[in-house]
Design a protein around this nucleic acid. Structure first.
Lengths: 274, 274
DNA sequence: GGATAATCATGATCTGGATCAACAAAAAGT
DNA sequence: ACTTTTTGTTGATCCAGATCATGATTATCC
């Protein structure tokens, strides 16, 4: 399997066994070479999109307490790999807090980013056909990850049919997402791609940051461009135009959504649907 | 849900209950407005990629006889819909023989073909999140379809864990396919796209047709172009160039693979993998 | 079988976004 | 604090593939 030279280490050792929320919070605090990491506020399982699934596994009891599905949580920092292509598959992962990018290689070394994954999202599902990861997952900011042993999950789902149904729905959703990306890459122009992408961030938007809903872009312009089948320069230019037009406002890594209706219109999708 | 005006009828009535192979064969024979339909040779379940799954459902017995998983088979003809976007989801479908294209709409009416599906492939898996079809499936030639009731499947898989695993693997594979398409649409040029597409047909290649492996293109140039994020004209030109270069040979709807090694090199993927 | 409509093919022109280039700003490292 | 590296920004130029146009085949329909 092709791997271009890469400075980043595969820090499997950064993983550690499950620990109480207070300690967890402490562990993700500012740390040597990271001047101002995102503050990792305490997050209850109840705020996680995976809560439904975790609760199903716990027979309806509070998943935050029972930990039936998730046996292990750990923290990874920017630049660390969660898995690499070719790794044998044992676990799937849920993002509890933070963000991760996944990408694949063409055989001549070009890469295509296949997704940015935020809180509550499950990744690694592309590996369970073939039992090896075909993609790579790299962490974009200090990220809290729930690890789910796949054999353990299968065992649980034998007795809890709803859990199986839930997984099928999640995988079906991933297939849908792929189809939407085919539409974006195959039929939309650069402006529409950017607008669609920015709108898709709205799910993670922080409404308490300022007068306008804000989002912290943990990925670089280059990453966004790669994901959308464009170049860095084009992404820059279009973001600048959106800002000139008063649709967004950019301040460093933060993007403020000033006029989301207008942004929605630029996606070529009606704003009500999604 | 958006539906552009369309001449073709949603012929749900073309469906009929399961019937013996001989009758089945008879039913798909030449028929009024179809001057020379593809001859539908008798096909045993053993030749179908779904055989493994059907046999699992039948507890290892011959699926051709037991019909545990598939309760109904039917034939659709060119231009008929298998399902349309917005239809409520009850069944998934396996292509037993023939070919089907699936596509989605952007909200302003552009379409993106999301796949061409041949024998042994399962379609409809994108619907089980939301329980409505998000895509449309239209038949490209006289096609033999196995219908699998999804609730029935779920019931079976409760008692047959391997069946569930098999389904997860199939869905995982569909996710992988989507990622590969993102790479193709996001990073490959027109020549590479065509070469990749033609190579992907090799799975269905008929080696007995002539001196060279042959494939009958049941989809139009326009469909291929749409699928690959190109225009009709570009597809035409590149196919013509491939022919000039002695890589393929085109005769009407048939394409002959003259030099598959050279074709594989043009995909940007090493020929050994895939 | 002959009219009509799709589909396919190929040439001429145009353009959205890539590429190239040069610098500014921010991170990371010492 | 100061250097080095990475990331972001903006302008000038170029080109792969879209668009436009026209005719040749091939299906479809009555």
């Amino acid at each position: 399997m092709y791997h271009p030279a890469n400075m980043l280490t595969h820090n499997g050792l950064a993983k550690c066994w499950i620990y109480p929320p207070e300690l967890e919070q402490l562990m993700s605090k500012p740390y040597n070479r990271t001047p101002s990491p995102p503050t990792l506020e305490f997050m209850s399982c109840k705020d996680c999109d995976m809560y439904g699934m975790c609760r199903l596994a716990s027979n309806g009891e509070d998943a935050n307490v029972t930990n039936t599905l998730v046996k292990r949580r750990f923290v990874l920092r920017r630049g660390e790999y969660l898995y690499r292509s070719g790794d044998t598959f044992h676990e799937i992962y849920a993002v509890r807090h933070g963000s991760i990018k996944t990408y694949i290689y063409s055989n001549d070394g070009r890469t295509q980013i296949t997704g940015f994954h935020g809180r509550g999202e499950i990744i690694g599902l592309d590996a369970l056909n073939g039992m090896r990861f075909a993609s790579e997952a790299i962490v974009l900011e200090t990220t809290n990850i729930c690890e789910i042993s796949f054999p353990h999950f299968l065992g649980l789902s034998r007795n809890i049919p709803d859990l199986q149904d839930h997984m099928l729905a999640i995988m079906s959703h991933a297939i849908l997402r792929g189809q939407q990306m085919m539409l974006l890459l195959g039929k939309k122009n650069a402006t529409e791609r950017l607008a669609t992408y920015l709108m898709s961030l709205s799910r993670h938007i922080d409404k308490n940051k300022s007068s306008h809903p804000a989002y912290k872009l943990t990925m670089s312009r280059r990453d966004i461009a790669n994901y959308l089948g464009l170049t860095q320069e084009t992404v820059c230019r279009i973001l600048a135009r959106f800002q000139e037009d008063g649709i967004i406002k950019i301040e460093g890594k933060y993007i403020y959504f000033v006029d989301m209706d207008r942004l929605a219109n630029l996606t070529s999708e009606s704003p009500t649907e999604q």
